[in-house]
């Protein structure tokens, strides 16, 4: 049991020791380990997304009372692999009137930012690529860069729908970033740290979803909007904007945007379970299995919401953020402050 729990930590320790026995200096061995960790992150992302896209289609099929993909493999599990192969082999089309450099850079930038989010996520006990002392803030601040990538895609495409979609998504993401950050304040106030490993350690006795239920709900709503997922998927609302900022993209470039959105979904779900559901802590099972289970539960919740609620109108969407979510999160912060003050007063 203990062996399974520390499997990956032991593996990296053993790897470092092995490199050192070959005469590699410690600094270089650490650098090589870091590279391998980055490759592992890419592997984790790709594996999860392959499962996730299949799962999304199956869940949506179940909710809409249809079978979903069911031809390739048992219950259609290999459908995503086939789709990926198809997208990879498609002709790479760049429309002639585009702003070429921006058009090409946008999907790469979008994907890079999404992958960078993973380096601060605790994926188990002592399993974190970098334990930044401002880890949570790193996550929020890098997330704000994705607006630039979307804007570049929309502008570079030189197309009305693309630009409209990009404008919508930027307006939406900037508005929802405020309640997103504010709803995490309660957790930070209780923990007294922005370090993600500290936040997990602070949930030793009680999960923060019990102490901060309102923050959990507001964060969930704001995160849905940040991820551009339904019911807040205005930026790519198919019926009115064809595909928003992605209209002119095809083949692998389109797939990169698509992949990045799912990469973000996994990252945000993992962050949600780290902040509110106790992170990797749990009985019996090893820690790295717990975080996977919790992340998948949260992702299932995101899917459930997406396929249950109809799309919300753009002006309602903005009004909801500014007139409902932000006041609620502010009240939550004040209440948390009072609660902490009283609690510390009692505790001495």
């Amino acid at each position: 049991m203990q062996k399974i729990e520390t499997l990956f930590v032991d593996l990296s320790d053993w790897f470092i020791a092995w490199l050192q026995s070959l005469g590699v200096p410690l600094a270089w061995a650490d650098a090589i380990l870091l590279l391998i960790q980055f490759l592992c992150i890419v592997g984790i992302i790709l594996a999860n997304i392959t499962i996730l896209i299949w799962l999304e289609r199956k869940v949506s099929g179940f909710i809409q009372q249809r079978p979903g993909p069911n031809r390739l493999g048992p219950h259609g599990v290999f459908q995503t692999v086939a789709d990926a192969l198809k997208l990879l082999t498609k002709e790479d089309i760049i429309p002639s009137k585009t702003d070429r450099l921006i058009f090409i850079t946008a999907p790469i930038l979008f994907m890079t930012i999404s992958v960078m989010l993973y380096i601060v996520l605790p994926m188990g006990k002592d399993m974190q690529v970098v334990d930044l002392n401002v880890g949570l803030f790193f996550f929020i601040s890098l997330g704000s860069l994705t607006t630039i990538a979307l804007l570049m895609g929309g502008w570079g495409s030189n197309n009305k729908w693309s630009l409209l979609g990009a404008m919508r998504s930027v307006a939406q993401m900037i508005s929802y970033e405020i309640p997103l950050a504010l709803s995490l304040m309660g957790v930070v106030m209780i923990t007294g740290s922005l370090r993600l490993s500290d936040i997990v350690a602070a949930q030793d006795n009680v999960w923060f979803i019990l102490l901060q239920p309102i923050a959990f709900i507001t964060y969930f709503i704001a995160a849905t909007a940040e991820l551009n997922r339904g019911p807040f998927d205005m930026p790519e609302a198919e019926q009115e904007l064809t595909a928003g900022a992605y209209t002119e993209y095809s083949g692998m470039r389109y797939a990169l945007f698509f992949l990045a959105e799912y990469t973000n979904l996994v990252a945000v779900s993992a962050l949600l379970s780290t902040l509110f559901l106790g992170g990797w802590q749990g009985p019996w099972l090893p820690s790295w299995l717990w975080i996977i289970i919790k992340t998948y539960l949260v992702m299932f919740l995101f899917m459930w919401v997406k396929w249950t609620f109809p799309r919300i109108r753009m002006d309602h969407l903005m009004a909801f953020s500014w007139k409902v979510l932000i006041p609620v999160t502010l009240v939550n912060i004040v209440a948390t402050g009072f609660g902490l003050y009283i609690f510390k007063g009692i505790g001495g």
Partner: peptide
């Protein structure tokens, strides 16, 4: 690190979007 992240969030993420 904190200042660097503020720089990314405020300048690269918000002010430049406003300019564009």
């Amino acid at each position: 690190e904190f200042l660097g992240l503020v720089q990314i969030m405020v300048y690269a993420g918000a002010i430049s979007v406003l300019i564009i």
